[in-house]
């Protein structure tokens, strides 16, 4: 068992290198745990929500009834958002219980997360406005498909990162 004493005032370069390597090793294995992907059911919920959002928001913004009356789209968006937030809270708690670490959103490289965090809201909201201004439903259909593909891609990136980090 390690004691609290007997550490020299200044470690040698080799000792310092070994300590740094040890810390890096612990951080890598912890990163693998932090990169545990959402369970499939919640990844499906996220995908369904981002796919529904541009359609429901577009229907809500539309000047005339599109497929459903505008209030129905408003209700759809409100209910789906509430359900999504409730499921997110539940999934987050379950994830923390399962992994034993804090839920973090910064485990993927910033080159992936920054475009996602800025681009996805722009896509979801912007396509609905483009639909309102042009009346072309292709905007929201394309945004819905793209958002679903991004969600699936993001989930697969987490799965791959988790496997890669766990294999080290």
């Amino acid at each position: 068992m390690e004691t609290d004493t007997h550490f020299p005032d200044r470690p040698t370069p080799d000792e310092a290198r070994a300590a740094l390597a040890d810390a890096a090793c612990v951080q890598e294995s912890t990163a693998a745990r932090s990169a545990t992907p959402w369970p499939l059911w919640f990844a499906t919920v996220i995908t369904a929500y981002v796919a529904l959002f541009p359609v429901a928001y577009g229907g809500m913004l539309s000047d005339r009834d599109w497929l459903l009356p505008t209030p129905a789209w408003t209700a759809t968006l409100a209910v789906s958002t509430l359900v999504y937030l409730a499921l997110f809270a539940y999934a987050g708690r379950a994830w923390r219980r399962r992994t034993g670490v804090a839920l973090r959103f910064d485990v993927l490289p910033k080159t992936v997360t920054v475009p996602l965090v800025t681009g996805l809201p722009l896509l979801l909201v912007g396509s609905a406005w483009a639909f309102k201004l042009t009346g072309r439903s292709a905007w929201i259909v394309a945004a819905s498909a793209l958002a679903a593909a991004v969600s699936v891609g993001f989930h697969l990136a987490f799965v791959r990162l988790h496997r890669k980090a766990g294999a080290r």
Partner: peptide, 19 residues
């Protein structure tokens, strides 16, 4: 600098919070 404490700090920094 004590090895186990360095490793504890490394884990907590990477995890944010850990059980």
């Amino acid at each position: 600098h004590a090895p186990n404490r360095l490793r504890i700090c490394a884990l907590l920094e990477a995890a944010g919070e850990a059980e």
